[in-house]
Design a protein around this nucleic acid. Structure first.
Lengths: 254, 254
DNA sequence: TGCGTCCGATTGTCGGACAATGCAAAATGA
DNA sequence: TCATTTTGCATTGTCCGACAATCGGACGCA
């Protein structure tokens, strides 16, 4: 075949499969606002008519969108347009980090400013109701201070509450993936560093104290200390910051 | 039917469709490390045998994974296991933020600490090669300072380079979504605030200066100023920080 | 009105089919 | 022998038709 089109470097036609085109068309409708979240997408048969392709092809296209949340099936299995779900986004992001073998040092470097910013926002905006829940969490942790698993679980809950108090979805989405990878190490640290639970507890008390007094600087200070404490504890537990995040943590985030 | 199972809170049988089970099974194999990235996944026929379902079902299952990048088709259309792609993750995240109607204020609050942390990391780790590219970018922006579109585009490129220099994937994944939404406003601001391009350019020069001198504090300072400048410019352009991010910005991020 | 029943619509799954295309082995030429 | 072309096979993308399970709603009944 040699010089197939002399001069033309072989245009490399890349035909997009029909199922992909279907997905893109539907996606476009949703993103453009033509279809708003919560509206029915229509039946498969209707989509078959609209796009002029086979039902199997339509179904494959829908699957592409289903996972991201743009399209969802309710209990009746009918198709609805939906908002992309967040929490799943965060866990996908942390999964990607693990598979790309990001290190704990990278995690620490990101978690520090994010934690500080989150606490600051929480100090500025926490509602009485959330403060109450934060305090309840502390009380429970005081009671369970000797149980590493319980401490880890409550720590997780505490930070979720702080994230909620911050009332900032961008921050939330930026912070959550790293938090999902940092928090599971709390249990490990508690097992190796006897004073860790007490330090965690104290930091949490200081968080709440700062929030109640609306003291931004105190909030930022304790956020920093809390994360740096984590780092020290992590190293004292014998782990290297430059090791890739263990695949193990994937399972903890389902 | 009244009290169907007294005491039993109605088990709510939820049959998972087979195509979803297929996807989960494959996903599990990849996440557990049984299948490593870059290995062939096998043909559809093989999967049909393994799972004992129809080819259509297998194909639907694959589509669920295809979009996240865990499974990819190469030029020959064969299936390979792959790493989740990041850049797409970032754009999905920013899309989610827009659809959830996050506000520019939320964006600002997250972008500030993330930008500071990114610049700090860049100061600590930038290679001579990247510094050279940063300087080249500045030179080009000097030449194009009167063209808002070009300024916006170069600004985007500059920040991408800074992100690359930071060499921190966690930070990258946290920062990118907000950056993807902030940067498109640069053009708007340049059109309304005459001195904006000069200020952007100056901040970029200070970034590079701090990086070359390995001056962390200067880097942090100028990162803060740069983002606060953006905020001021945004407001002076007549936009409200509390307005939801415009759907328009979705299209700029494809 | 409240209840159970029935029917149509829709989805999930299956089996089979075929064209297009990429890949590798076989055949051809030097 | 080596390089190149041809051929054949495997695989994917797409289509068609089919059927069971199940959901929603209409209908009939008390």
């Amino acid at each position: 075949m040699g010089g197939r089109f002399p001069g033309n470097p072989l245009p490399r036609i890349r035909t997009t499969p029909a199922y992909r085109l279907v997905a893109e068309a539907i996606e476009k409708r949703i993103l453009s606002g033509e279809l708003r979240a919560g509206e029915p997408l229509g039946t498969e048969a209707e989509l078959v008519k609209q796009f002029g392709v086979n039902r199997s092809t339509v179904r494959e296209g829908i699957r592409l969108l289903e996972q991201s949340g743009l399209v969802r099936r309710d209990a009746s299995r009918r198709l609805w347009t939906g908002l992309p779900h967040y929490e799943r986004l965060a866990s996908r992001t942390s999964r990607a980090l693990v598979l790309h073998q990001a290190t704990f040092r990278e995690l620490y470097e990101a978690a520090l400013p994010l934690q500080i910013a989150t606490v600051q926002a929480a100090v500025e905006r926490a509602t009485p109701e959330i403060i109450e829940r934060l305090e309840a969490n502390i009380t429970r942790m005081e009671e369970a201070a000797s149980d590493p698993a319980a401490v880890a679980s409550l720590d997780r809950e505490f930070h979720a509450l702080v994230g909620e108090a911050a009332a900032n979805r961008v921050l939330q989405l930026a912070r959550e993936p790293s938090e999902m990878l940092v928090l599971p190490t709390t249990e490990l640290i508690s097992r190796h560093v006897p004073e860790a639970p007490a330090r965690v507890l104290h930091a949490h008390r200081m968080y709440v104290d700062a929030i109640k007094r609306r003291d931004v600087e105190a909030g930022r200070l304790w956020a920093r200390r809390h994360i740096e404490d984590w780092k020290k504890g992590f190293e004292r537990a014998g782990r290297s910051l430059d090791a890739p995040i263990d695949r193990l943590y994937l399972e903890l985030n389902r």
